[in-house]
């Protein structure tokens, strides 16, 4: 997690000093979704981790915007995806 946090604050310096909230997520097979989308058999139970960096920023007209950067990591510690709030 330290490695990921270091990488994120290097790539996205605006989140430097923000401590991420780490959540473990257990993904159950999404059978109904697979069926509705005609995608065959759902993947097995999976475990992923999400690091969520959150901060509130001020715009030039003093509106508050919640900035969120989510990093999803698989069990091997590899980043699956990084998303930003719009």
């Amino acid at each position: 997690m330290k490695r990921i946090t270091k990488q994120i604050t290097r790539d996205f310096p605006e989140f430097k000093g923000v401590k991420p909230k780490i959540t473990e997520k257990k993904i159950r097979p999404q059978d109904k979704l697979y069926k509705k989308l005609s995608l065959g058999v759902a993947k097995e139970f999976r475990r992923v981790y999400q690091l969520s960096f959150r901060k509130v920023v001020q715009t030039v007209d003093n509106a508050s915007i919640e900035r969120i950067l989510n990093v999803t990591i698989d069990e091997a510690g590899e980043i699956i995806k990084i998303t930003h709030s719009r």
């Binding site: 605006e14 001020q58 715009t59 030039v60 007209d61 509106a63 508050s64 915007i65 719009r86």
Partner: peptide, 22 residues
């Protein structure tokens, strides 16, 4: 449009670093 928005503001915002202009 791929910009920032707020529930309370009527504006949309850009971003460059820590700068969030209308």
């Amino acid at each position: 449009f791929n910009v920032h928005g707020s529930k309370f503001s009527s504006n949309w915002y850009g971003q460059d670093g820590e700068n969030y202009p209308i």
